[in-house]
Simulated assay, not measured.
Amino acid sequence: MHTTPRTHLTHHTAPDGVAPGAGYTHVVTGAGRLVAVSGQVALDADGDLVGAGDPAAQARQVFENLRRCLAAAGAAFTDVVKLTYYVTDTAHLPAIRAARDARVDVTRPPASTAVQVAALFRPDLLLEIEAWALVGGEAR
């Protein structure tokens, strides 16, 4: 089992016998206050779509919305332990990863799951991302 040194409040682990994650960590543990951020989509503060038909622009807006939600809870991307991606087409994943990598510590990425869905609640939305964060406490 490979474990990275604790530099924050979480512990990132790559279990023996499991293929290494490409841009995510298999196991993230920690202690503290749990922050759950509902799935965010590419709507701006006025509820207008950002980036119609453009997965990169939508991903950037989604990560900005996530940043604002985390900040409202006293958290930051350094506290995120899990991201879940809902995408209408897995071809959008490279654009999503680029937006993610601009926000997270790529040497200690959060755990993640990507799911292709038939549709989101509006047909012009290409992706939705939810986040889980741990704030405070002591990692084990």
Rank of each mutant, 00 (worst) to 15 (best):
38 S>W: 14
66 L>K: 06
2 H>V: 07
106 V>C: 08
134 L>E: 08
31 A>E: 04
128 E>Y: 01
56 A>E: 13
54 D>C: 03
68 R>F: 10
68 R>N: 12
111 A>Q: 11
135 V>K: 01
110 P>R: 00
4 T>V: 07
46 D>K: 15
84 T>S: 05
110 P>S: 02
117 V>M: 14
62 V>W: 14
100 R>D: 02
120 L>Q: 05
98 A>S: 13
103 R>C: 15
1 M>C: 08
26 H>D: 11
2 H>C: 02
105 D>Y: 07
129 I>V: 15
54 D>F: 02
131 A>Q: 05
2 H>G: 02
105 D>M: 09
88 T>D: 07
86 Y>L: 13
124 D>H: 13
26 H>R: 13
25 T>I: 14
15 P>A: 05
13 T>D: 14
109 P>Y: 00
29 T>C: 03
52 A>K: 06
82 K>V: 11
80 V>P: 07
92 H>A: 14
8 H>S: 05
81 V>S: 02
136 G>T: 03
5 P>R: 12
102 A>F: 03
89 D>M: 10
23 G>V: 08
127 L>S: 07
40 Q>D: 02
79 D>N: 03
51 G>I: 08
125 L>G: 04
90 T>E: 03
31 A>S: 10
100 R>V: 00
24 Y>S: 10
40 Q>E: 10
98 A>Q: 11
78 T>V: 14
129 I>H: 06
43 L>E: 09
100 R>E: 06
127 L>Y: 02
62 V>R: 15
98 A>K: 04
65 N>R: 07
15 P>F: 01
68 R>H: 12
96 I>H: 00
137 G>P: 02
137 G>V: 03
125 L>R: 05
89 D>G: 07
102 A>V: 03
10 T>C: 00
88 T>Y: 08
79 D>E: 03
33 R>T: 09
80 V>M: 13
30 G>N: 14
36 A>T: 12
107 T>R: 02
27 V>A: 08
47 G>D: 04
37 V>A: 01
94 P>D: 00
39 G>S: 06
40 Q>M: 04
52 A>R: 13
7 T>I: 14
8 H>C: 05
120 L>A: 01
55 P>R: 10
102 A>Q: 05
104 V>K: 00
39 G>T: 06
140 R>Y: 02
6 R>L: 03
17 G>H: 05
102 A>T: 03
7 T>K: 14
5 P>I: 12
129 I>N: 07
54 D>T: 09
28 V>T: 01
111 A>F: 11
40 Q>R: 09
29 T>G: 13
72 A>P: 03
20 P>Q: 12
58 Q>N: 04
44 D>I: 13
75 A>Y: 04
115 V>P: 02
40 Q>P: 01
66 L>R: 11
88 T>M: 05
86 Y>S: 09
31 A>K: 05
4 T>A: 14
129 I>P: 04
123 P>V: 11
106 V>P: 00
54 D>I: 08
95 A>P: 00
123 P>Y: 11
74 G>F: 09
51 G>T: 05
89 D>Y: 11
43 L>C: 06
1 M>F: 07
11 H>F: 08
108 R>P: 02
20 P>G: 10
109 P>I: 04
127 L>P: 03
38 S>G: 13
67 R>Q: 14
80 V>K: 06
101 D>K: 07
54 D>Q: 05
72 A>Q: 13
22 A>S: 15
46 D>S: 13
